[in-house]
Design a protein around this nucleic acid. Structure first.
Length: 416
RNA sequence: GUGGGCGUAGCUCAAUGGCAGAGCACUGGACUGUGGCUCCAGUGGUUGCGGGUUCAAUCCCCGUCGCCCACCCCA
């Protein structure tokens, strides 16, 4: 093999594409009912946009970004996620001047230089959703309900919907201090990763999977007990609204998002039928990010859906569609080859999927091909048919055959 | 970045320190112009790449690249 796609990059071929198209169509039809509009964003942004929003000490920024200098010596980065670019877009175009909230979605590839594994690629596709300009828990509830609607509409059940609040810039620092106090004396007993987390992102100790760490962190202060009144009310109202809207969820006090910009509500949808990378969608509030980007103080919330992971799940539920032509036109002889092309075109003009023979093969091999590509009908056109002005039609599913005048072919297949 | 497993035909996989194979798929034939079933034949390989050991390496050793899985982290 001389060439292969770069590590962590993959081709998506026709049998799989039908699942992707189904996902995209379902997303559009659900999102439009919630008033979300599609936007198309650049795949490259100024590097600083991601550093400022995602956070300097996150893995994404520290080691996973495809960053390079363009010919104008600007540092640019292939987007590792969509929210930063969406916020940049919102601020750049002054979209806060439009009635609030403004609601958007987008779909496309993201890039992270990571070691590939099941459900993880260096180029991966996300459908992203962002809503700007409403601080009320009603918006959180709606956006989560919309995600739930979407997942139901493509036929996915048995997903885990987890919810948490990580507080705001008032209560989170207090909570972090409480965690530092709790772990200070016992951190040396934790795994090396947790010792690193103690300094970089202490919240992450709460979802370490190492058995010893799970035991040792028993009794650690829960975020729910440290939310300020404002955040606690927001969260309580949200859970109440989700119950009203019949959105099932479970609380997970250890649900921590890795990106710095999240505030208050965080949520994640996972499946047990994926590998270790089991999150199919995740998101949360980011009330400070628009201001951070130079816009007015504008609360916002969003989520992202992992397309590959969703497609993997959907393929186990719904088999990929096998699309097949209505008619295969088999021809024998130069003159019939030409006439066959003309017939093919006229049937296509009637809206049918028609495949011509490209000439030169035996009738036997042409019919074999017609069968293998799953055509419903074959039209047979040779010297006899040309001279009589009548083609043979054959129903390949039922094995029936008959004659039809060349001038009647369109009418024949319009009814067939 | 770390750890483990695996690289042989388009796909799924055999094989052995001594001529590189099967099934499926593809093309054709048996059946001068009638598919599916059957039978026959054909196309297709620098055994991922590079080096080493050896009379001889697909096999053993080293390196490298790729794939898979897990950690970290994340959609």
């Amino acid at each position: 093999m001389k060439y292969s796609a770069p590590k962590g990059f993959q081709d998506i071929l026709p049998p799989e594409i039908s699942v992707w198209q189904r996902i995209e169509a379902a997303a559009r039809s659900v999102f439009v009912k919630y008033g979300f509009h599609e936007i198309r964003l650049p795949i490259i942004e100024a590097t600083d946009i991601f550093v400022r929003s995602i956070g300097e000490i996150t893995d994404i920024v520290e080691k996973e970004m495809y960053t390079f200098r363009d010919k104008g010596d600007r540092s640019v980065t292939l987007r590792p996620e969509g929210t930063a670019g969406a916020v940049r877009c919102f601020v750049e175009h002054g979209l806060h001047n439009l009635p609030s909230p403004q609601k958007f979605y987008y779909a496309g590839p993201m890039f992270r230089y990571e070691r590939p594994q099941k459900g993880r690629f260096r180029q991966f596709y996300q459908i992203g959703v962002e809503a700007f300009g409403a601080a009320q828990p009603a918006l959180d509830a709606e956006i989560i309900a919309m995600l739930n609607d979407f997942l139901k509409s493509i036929g996915l059940l048995n997903l885990n919907f987890e919810l948490n609040s990580i507080g705001c810039d008032v209560c989170r620092p207090v909570y972090k201090e409480a965690l530092q106090l709790f772990f200070r004396d016992k951190i040396s007993g934790f795994c090396p990763d947790c010792n690193r987390r103690y300094n970089t992102n202490i919240l992450r100790i709460l979802d370490c999977k190492v058995e010893r760490c799970v035991e040792l962190r028993g009794g650690a202060p829960a975020v729910s007990g440290h939310l300020c009144e404002h955040c606690r009310i927001h969260f309580d109202e949200l859970t109440g609204l989700l119950e009203t809207l019949d959105v099932p969820f479970s609380l997970n006090a250890n649900l921590v998002r890795g990106l710095d910009y999240y505030t208050k509500t965080t949520f994640e949808v996972t499946s047990e039928h994926l590998g270790a990378q089991k999150a199919v969608a995740a998101g949360g509030r980011y009330d400070k990010l628009v201001k951070e980007f130079g816009g007015p103080d504008t609360p916002a919330i969003g989520f992202a859906i992992g397309m590959e992971r969703l497609a993997t799940l959907l393929q186990t539920v719904v088999p990929p569609e096998k699309a097949a032509p209505k008619v295969f036109v088999a021809t024998l002889g130069k003159q019939a080859d030409t006439e066959g092309l003309r017939i093919t075109k006229s049937l296509r003009n009637n809206g049918l999927w028609v495949e011509p023979s490209y000439g030169g093969a035996s009738l036997k091999s042409q019919l074999r091909k017609a069968d293998r590509i799953g055509a419903e009908y074959a039209v047979i056109l040779g010297e006899n048919e040309l001279s009589s002005g009548k083609a043979q039609w054959k129903n390949l599913k039922e094995g029936t055959q008959g004659e039809v005048a060349l001038t009647e072919l369109q009418a024949f297949f319009a009814k067939a």
